[in-house]
Amino acid sequence: MESYEEVINNLLGSVKNKNEARVARKLISALEEIPEYDPDPLDIQDIYALALNCLPPRYKQKGTIVLSESVNDEEIMAALRVAIQKVRSNPKYAKGENV
């Protein structure tokens, strides 16, 4: 029998928030809507995290059957648009600075 520690360590690799991959796939499309915006890698990370925080989590484990998506693509794009505007309006550092 596995120890609790082994079971918990296995959880970290097997339980995922399904929205993470969906947000990552839509992020490029959302950024392409604003061609004049050239975000730094840190900006992109902030946008990704903010968008995920605006969406309900969709955790699944390996082998889970998904019967329906509770968040549609337009809701993901809306969350990304809001996140992009927040990051653009509130930069945490000056462009070109070493963070």
Score class of each variant (00 low, 15 high):
A83K: 02
K16C: 04
A78L: 11
L55E: 05
L27S: 09
S89D: 15
E6L: 05
K60W: 01
D40F: 07
R22S: 12
V7F: 13
A21Y: 03
P41C: 07
G63L: 04
C54I: 04
K62M: 07
G63Y: 02
E97Q: 14
I28G: 07
V66E: 13
A94T: 14
Q45K: 14
P56C: 03
A49S: 13
Y59F: 13
P41W: 00
I34G: 01
V7K: 15
K60A: 12
A79N: 10
N98P: 01
N98H: 04
N72P: 05
Q85Y: 03
A51Q: 07
D43C: 10
L12A: 05
E20P: 00
G96Q: 07
D73N: 15
E5Y: 03
R81P: 02
I65E: 04
E36A: 11
I28D: 14
E2V: 07
N98R: 07
S70P: 08
V87W: 08
R58H: 08
E2M: 10
I28Y: 03
V71H: 10
V66N: 03
I8P: 00
L80V: 04
L67N: 06
E36S: 14
N53G: 13
S89M: 08
C54L: 15
V15R: 08
Y37A: 06
E97L: 05
L50P: 00
N98S: 09
A49F: 07
Y4P: 03
S14R: 11
E33F: 00
N10H: 08
K18A: 14
V23W: 04
N19P: 03
V87Q: 12
S3Q: 01
K95T: 03
A51C: 06
L50N: 11
E33I: 01
A24K: 15
S89I: 01
V15D: 04
V7Q: 07
Q85A: 08
I65M: 06
M77W: 01
L42T: 11
D38C: 05
K18L: 15
V71Y: 06
S29Y: 10
N72T: 04
K60P: 00
S68R: 13
E2Y: 14
I8F: 13
Y37W: 14
